[in-house]
Simulated assay, not measured.
Amino acid sequence: MIEITINRTESGIIQSFEMSGHALFADRGKDIICAGVSAVSVGAINAVHELTGVTPDIEHRVDGFLRCVVPEELPDDVHEKVQLILEAMAVSLRSIEEEYGKHIKITFKKQEVE
């Protein structure tokens, strides 16, 4: 199962996300769930960088682990663009989860204090 955690600040802003595991829906190279999750998450990271100039802190491993942390102290206009891209990613991932919930689980965590 692919497990995804999206971490939000107390005010609801996406601060980071991480994912690990494999969907095990089909053989390697034919797993549409893994491919979809990878395309959505890596596409969002690439879009943040390309469209806003922000380079998130990223850790990526061949075992399927991915962590992305948004830098703090961004200008308001840039921060809003980054959030829009990450919220779109979350919507896309939830769509995959709705259809293939046996293979992907998303957890949203909210900080208690900022």
Score class of each variant (00 low, 15 high):
V82W: 02
F108N: 02
G21N: 09
G53I: 01
A35D: 07
S20G: 06
E87W: 08
I14H: 03
T55K: 12
I96L: 14
A23P: 13
M89Q: 15
R67D: 05
E50S: 13
A23W: 14
S95C: 02
Q111Y: 03
A35C: 07
V37L: 05
T107L: 07
Y100V: 02
T107W: 09
E112C: 12
I33T: 11
A88H: 13
A35Q: 01
T55E: 06
T9W: 01
I85H: 01
E10L: 02
G21V: 10
R28F: 12
F25A: 13
K110R: 13
L84S: 14
V69C: 01
L24D: 15
L24S: 09
S20I: 10
S38H: 09
I106T: 00
E114Y: 11
V91E: 05
L66W: 03
H49F: 08
E72R: 14
N7E: 15
K30E: 15
Q111H: 05
R61A: 12
I4E: 07
S11L: 10
C68G: 00
M1P: 14
I2A: 00
F65W: 05
S20P: 01
I2E: 07
L51Q: 05
I58C: 04
V62A: 12
E50Q: 08
E18T: 06
Y100Q: 11
H103I: 10
I2P: 06
I106Q: 04
T107E: 12
I32V: 06
V48Q: 03
H49A: 08
I2T: 04
M1G: 10
N46D: 13
L93N: 03
H49I: 11
E80C: 10
G21S: 05
V82F: 00
L24E: 14
S38R: 10
